[in-house]
Design a protein around this nucleic acid. Structure first.
Lengths: 179, 179
DNA sequence: AAATGCATGTAACGCGTTACATGATTTT
DNA sequence: AAAATCATGTAACGCGTTACATGCATTT
């Protein structure tokens, strides 16, 4: 099965949310290691509800087509727990930057270096964001049982970004060097 | 357009090959940053030939359904060069391991640590493979104008693997620590 | 009342994998 | 001659994105 329903289930295990909230949360907090689109989220919510893994939070406003908030059910928590225990399946790698450098011999002069410089800037910004996020988590989530896990995840992003920055410097001097 | 045809074009720019060769090359040498399946490669070859970006290398054996080797054309080289100059588009991130750790609070005890240990082992092996590959490249491709680019790519894999190993150790002690 | 943002939902499409069918070539 | 491996090719399927349609709520 797709991992999308489990991502949704996982977010609902933290707190009840609407499809829109789920999207926003992924976009704002998880975007450095995960992504989902509406086209995935809403159908997933539908299927999860049909399977009784989530349930609508009864909202007083009976308005049709209003905001629909869901919570995870006990059954949903069990399913989530079982999924969390399974070894993650790595997705097949597809790094377009490395592919372009691999064929770099045929690239116009300077193209590879330009790509690497762009990467470096992105990762620099990401690193700053994640550092800020670390401070924020410590401040705002103090005492939250999720905190330790979230810090580990952020540190993964941080160490990845820093490794990429260091590699960029190496790569740039290797590209510049007329060896 | 998909990047598959450019990956194919790029490999053919190194030397003429069959679809089977392309698959093997990707599997053996590029698998740490790229992947393609037959279901992508053969249709891509067909389209590239139709567009005159590659041409069959005339093989004497007129046998139907034999080995079909292709070479890149001048037009193909131009197209490849243009693609190489464009900024690579990053694929949306989907790291299932980090997702599972993010929801780690709901995981059975020890599950996250087990995932991280598995990652560590994989990356340790990858690091060893890439180190071997570096030596091999220096030895066997000495003088090859591709060498510098290939070494940069391998060093990206290596620094990524090493960063992941270091992060694993951090993560494991954070997971173990009863903070 | 118009514009903007919040919110839900789906249809269409493309990419990529998996699994299978087929046949040629080499090894045992 | 059988088995293994090299090699080509496609059909079916699933996942995920993009783009659009719709309408509620709030601000200007």
């Amino acid at each position: 099965m797709s991992t999308t329903p489990f991502a949704v289930l996982g977010l609902l295990s933290i707190e009840p949310m609407s499809g829109y909230d789920i999207r926003r949360e992924i976009e704002e907090s998880l975007s450095f290691f995960w992504s989902e689109s509406y086209g995935q989220i809403y159908p997933a919510l539908k299927r999860l509800e049909a399977a009784r893994l989530i349930a609508p939070v009864t909202q007083a406003r009976s308005g049709i087509r209003g905001r629909r908030v869901f919570r995870i059910t006990a059954l949903g928590e069990a399913k989530l727990r079982a999924w969390l225990a399974e070894p993650p399946v790595p997705q097949p790698p597809r790094n377009e930057l490395l592919l372009k450098i691999f064929f770099g011999r045929h690239a116009p002069p300077g193209a590879c270096a330009a790509h690497v410089r762009r990467l470096r800037i992105q990762q620099q910004q990401l690193s700053a964001t994640l550092t800020r996020m670390t401070r924020q988590l410590h401040a705002e989530r103090h005492g939250d049982p999720n905190l330790r896990y979230w810090l580990i995840v952020v540190s993964a992003g941080l160490s990845r970004a820093d490794a990429l920055i260091q590699w960029s410097d190496q790569a740039l001097s290797a590209l510049a060097g007329g060896s």
